[in-house]
Design a binder for these strands. Structure first.
Lengths: 110, 110
DNA sequence: TTTTTTGGAAACCGTATGGTTTCATTTATA
DNA sequence: TATAAATGAAACCATACGGTTTCCAAAAAA
């Protein structure tokens, strides 16, 4: 739970965190409200939220004794753009296997 | 290195694997050629490639003593679509913080 | 002013992750 | 045929990950 390579891609790799993102995208919630959506313990959820804050996908505001969590998903643009780089792979009529078989073998010497 | 929750999101969470995807998207390569692009050992690269195959992003073909690796990135469509769900967060003129402050507090009781 | 509510923090735990080195095997090549 | 090339596989290793329980502190509500 240290601050290591905490980038967006790593943050969204966990399904629980993607669920939390889905929750907070619709409305901000305090920690306990978020935890109520899961069977795991509150501290576990808190750790996920911390990871999301470490890469900026979630921002936290303390109001009195409550910690309000809000989504700030501008960081997902990076993910979208990276994935879209490879759109041809699911748009093309040409399948990946065909592309491979058609490939010039001299390309393989890099 | 077992086959656990090997989904696409987890597979692309590692920067080395994203680099491998970038390499193989342009041309298929055998294992050693892939490993040449990195400072880490060949077995380490091989393990990354195995993870990529476990979720279908890479397909492997054995030709003689060589293992040719090809990208099959249709699985990234899922990632693109998931991220695009939240496009509003980076398209809107309305910033996330403003949206939060404007929010009806009664929304927070879910 | 007690008592809840809300959440932070610490200590732990088992397993996954990302890497290494070493060795064996198969296939080309000299 | 002897040698080199390309991998697979196994055994390790340190640390990160995802979770738990327990306890403490602060703020709100009775």
């Amino acid at each position: 739970m240290n601050q290591t390579r905490r980038d967006v891609f790593q943050a969204i790799s966990d399904p629980t965190r993607r669920e939390i993102i889905g929750l907070l995208a619709r409305h901000s919630l305090n920690l306990n409200k978020v935890a109520d959506h899961f069977t795991m313990s509150r501290p576990a959820v808190a750790k996920h939220i911390r990871i999301l804050t470490e890469c900026g996908l979630v921002v936290v505001q303390t109001r009195g004794r409550e910690t309000f969590c809000q989504a700030d998903l501008k960081g997902l643009k990076q993910v979208s753009e990276w994935a879209n780089t490879y759109q041809e792979f699911w748009n093309d009529k040409l399948d990946a296997l065909e592309r491979f078989l058609d490939e010039d073998p001299s390309d393989e010497n890099l």
